[in-house]
Amino acid sequence: MSNQTSERRQRSAAWGFLLPALGLIAVFFFLPVLVGLVMSFTDFDVYAIGTPASIRFVGLRNYAQVLHDDEFWNALRNTFYFVAVGGPLSVLASLVAALLVNAKVARMKSFFRTVYFTPVVTTMVAVAIVWRYLLHPRYGLINAALVALHFKPVDWLGDPHYAMPAIILLAVWKNFGYNMLIFIAGLGSIPEDLYEAAELDGAGAWARFLHVTLPSLAPTFLFVGVMTMIGQFQIFQEPYVMTQGGPLRSTVTVVMLMYEQGFRWWRMGLATSIAFLLFVLMLVATAIQLRFQGGEARKA
């Protein structure tokens, strides 16, 4: 058999192998994204569902409208709050858990690792419901614990100042295990002799952590930071199940606003423009993070 026929056969086989996946991705992912871009320049709305002939091309009007809308800025503020507070908190919790599980003296590492990871695989809707009850002002375990520690009970989901913190608590609990795994892997790849050298230089445990562990973890931090942020910008289920966006719209997020505009009011043109704005925002935020943290990571 000649090399050439083999290559030709490989080429046609390759396309055969690729066809189902690429076909599905092209039709059900790329095409909707492109159509979405077009749609965001139209006034596709509830009338359009009944009367398709009523769709009009409106240029950038949807984008202008969204950017002039207090609702959007409110949703953006709430989302940023969630990302800016929830992100670092979640990464911190993951790091602490990873350090504990990875500690030389720790036993039953895989047991603890599994326990900490468990919330990650649970169904968000189900655990959000569980947390709704844990956060109940009168009967919830969390307030019972606060009272036992002589704090005042908090109306978590009824008070606009506490609703987002409550959702952040849930999100941290649900997700810290994922990043913990990645930190454990990162910790495992730090060469032992770095620590030994530091110890010879007389560095204590804290100094070793600051000067060896943290810098060596820089690339892990970058990965964890970007992935966490991307996920968190898309937060939807937690507020949908726990608060429906309330109280006083204090937990409406950008994706939730998009869902409301798109699938509640059926202003789909407007909703897609919100989605694209979110996309741009995520790109910018990721670029910023790559620039700053990426610099750190390269230094290490």
């Binding site: 006034d43 709305d45 009338y47 009367t51 009523s54 009009r56 409208q65």
Partner: peptide, 10 residues
Amino acid sequence: DLMLEKRRWM
């Protein structure tokens, strides 16, 4: 008025 623009047009 902006929200009702579509209705006016229809």
